[in-house]
Nucleic acid binder design. Structure first.
Length: 571
RNA sequence: UGGGACGUCGUUCAACGGUAGGACACCACGCUCUGGACGUGGUUAUCGGGGUUCGAAUCCCUGCGUCCCAGCCA
């Protein structure tokens, strides 16, 4: 069986026929002789999600396709929000996805001293000043979208005073919020990001890597372009919301007289329907226990998808299919599901599992007899071989596979009707046994001994094939069925329109735990991470909670279900 | 309202002045010991209005719509 180990499949280094706009740029630069350096720059303040997977595939993918390298750089410039737990999870997730940063693991915090020195350089050249306004005062002076800002009275401080103040900021002489270092650009710029943006702020806080050696921390807009420059990044790929920051990015690189000039290129982030993607909201789901942790299989996090049973290959395929462009997009979750199905169809061995058992007694089958049937492990993979499955007089089938009064398009078992038990025999339902309340508790059927293996020698056909499991041999297990986490395609906007919060739109049926499921014996000892197709039901993955003899499986995704569609239409 | 960006099938990505194409979804049919997979066929799109051109999704003008920016977050 295939498992969840981080075995890393090779990434296809061949670019696709028609290049996206980012690759067009990179290809042209590479053709002109540039050696390509990109970077994936997460802030360690949360777990990675499927949106990051797209960024990772682009950042690392572009690098490998053009013979370059991609750095993993943690943008850890805000100590109050960041934590090592997150850096560890991020590294694990990137690696699991199949990418390797070859030891090029960097941190913005590695550059604190250098960044500081460059800031002093800015001050010396009259390009930055210490502003002693409060945050409120700075905001009040910034102007609005339509009105220009007003110069701070501290804007004209001399170089020596600025240098002295900045050094004392570093030395810890001032309380949080009393001073900031600002770039001296243009308070009247129509681009608000250029109205003397803050470069450094005072934060007497421990940093997860530098401890208490610093009490001033650089802002993203200052640290990011310089980190790129220091690392020799050629193409700094990021999402659309940074487009308006690009003039500032370029300003910082230029005014700090960096030895290398990286280029920022923005593309549209990935959005998925029926979920939320912002780190803040995901954190909220975890903190308020609406889900069972960052790796809850309903979460769009990489760790959640992994626990759910998604393969790294399917996620990479998904990212390749959604493409790279500048248009805002919302991808249908169905595409992600299609990608796992396609991958798992070829790779996942089959097994039989009955989720909602209905007992079947074969009245003409000898009591105490057990037959061993050879069953194909994966019809899509000839190398997968066969396994032995026990068959006996008492079996379980799926409750959904029987109807006493079947509608016209229902092909499965019904009174008097003959169907095939997968890989076993043709059986005919003779009698329905009910309890006092009228509920169906057992079916009494006959089997045709001449149909062993599932084929009728007289060539007669049946319209349905059911999965089953031998009652005496089955192992009891728990199966967790997942559905979309939210009931609205776009939980944020739907909540806004109806005056609710996104939490009000959580799908109450997103998790359905089934106990007393009857599983084929081999499933009782499958290690966590084992992926398998339960025939006719879907792809499942042994959960972290699984234990020998007490298996727990997560449904990764159901099989496409034409009958469900037909049945829904009839209603 | 200032600035920046974006508008192509239901969704998403292509077409780079020369037949609007792929994928997912959807519909029909075929095949099938998984109502799965697979195969075949099909429906549906260039935001509006002007212009340039033999020819415009593509270039120009104009209108409309959507998104982003007023953190000492990233």
């Amino acid at each position: 069986m295939s498992t969840n180990d981080p075995a890393v499949p090779a990434v296809d280094p061949t670019p696709t026929a028609s290049l996206d706009f980012v690759r067009e740029i990179v290809a042209a630069d590479a053709a002109a002789g540039a050696s390509i350096v990109t970077r994936f720059p997460p802030e360690p303040n949360g777990y990675l999600h499927i949106g990051h997977a797209k960024a990772i595939c682009v950042d690392f993918g572009v690098a490998v396709e053009y013979g370059g390298i991609c750095n993993l750089r943690f943008d850890d410039t805000n100590p109050v929000k960041e934590d090592v737990e997150y850096v560890d999870s991020i590294k694990a997730d990137v690696h699991w996805l199949g990418f390797d940063w070859a030891g090029r693991e960097f941190y913005a915090s590695d550059y604190y001293e250098r960044l500081y020195q460059d800031a002093e350089g800015l001050i010396r050249r009259g390009k930055a000043y210490v502003d002693s306004h409060s945050a409120d005062e700075i905001r009040a002076h910034r102007g609005t979208l339509t009105e220009p800002g007003i110069d701070s009275p501290y804007r004209t401080r001399g170089v020596d005073e600025n240098l002295d103040l900045f050094r004392r900021m570093r030395a810890g002489e001032f309380a949080d919020g009393t001073h900031v270092l600002r770039a001296k650009i243009d308070m009247a710029s129509p681009n608000i990001n250029m109205r003397d943006p803050v470069l450094y702020r005072i934060r007497h806080a421990d940093h997860h890597r530098t401890g208490n050696t610093w009490c001033i921390y650089p802002m993203y807009d200052y640290a990011h372009p310089l980190s790129d420059a220091y690392e020799g990044v050629t193409h700094s790929l990021c999402t659309l919301e940074y487009e308006a920051h690009r003039p500032l990015y370029d300003w910082v690189v230029r005014e700090c007289e960096a030895a290398h000039t990286p280029r920022q290129i923005e593309f549209a982030r990935l959005n998925l329907n029926y979920t939320v993607m912002s780190k803040r909201k995901l954190l909220q789901l975890v903190a308020q226990q609406h889900v069972d942790g960052w790796d809850d299989p309903r979460m769009p996090t990489i760790s959640g998808l992994r626990r759910r049973g998604y393969t790294p290959e399917s996620i990479r395929d998904f990212c390749a299919r959604v493409g790279v462009a500048k248009k805002e997009n919302v991808i249908d979750i169905g595409l992600l599901e299609h990608c796992v199905r396609e991958d798992l169809n070829k790779r996942a061995p089959r097994a039989m599992a009955v989720l909602k058992p209905l007992k079947v007694v074969l009245t003409n089958y000898p009591e105490g007899q057990v037959e061993t049937l050879a069953v194909v492990n994966n019809p899509e993979d000839a190398t997968a071989g066969t396994r032995d499955v026990e068959f006996s007089r008492e079996l379980y089938i799926e409750q959904d596979d029987f109807q006493e009064d079947p509608p016209k398009k229902f092909f499965r078992l019904a009174p008097g009707r003959e169907v095939r038990l997968r890989n076993a025999y043709l059986i005919t339902c003779q009698e329905v046994v009910k309890d006092a309340s009228g509920a169906i508790v057992e079916l009494r059927c006959t089997y045709d001994p001449a149909t062993r293996g599932g084929d009728a020698p007289d060539g007669r056909k049946v319209k349905a094939t059911l999965h089953w499991v031998s009652a005496a041999h089955a192992v009891n297990g728990e199966v967790r069925l997942y559905d979309r986490l939210f009931t609205a395609e776009n939980p944020e906007s739907a909540a806004e329109k109806s005056g609710q919060t996104f939490l009000d739109l959580l799908n109450p049926a997103s998790l359905d735990v089934l106990r007393g499921c009857k599983l084929e014996p081999m499933l009782g000892t499958a290690p966590a991470g084992t992926r398998v197709q339960f025939e006719r039901l879907g792809y499942f993955c042994a959960d972290l909670d699984t234990a020998p003899g007490a298996p727990v499986f997560n449904r990764t995704v159901s099989l496409k279900d034409t009958w469900a569609k037909v049945a829904a239409r009839e209603v």
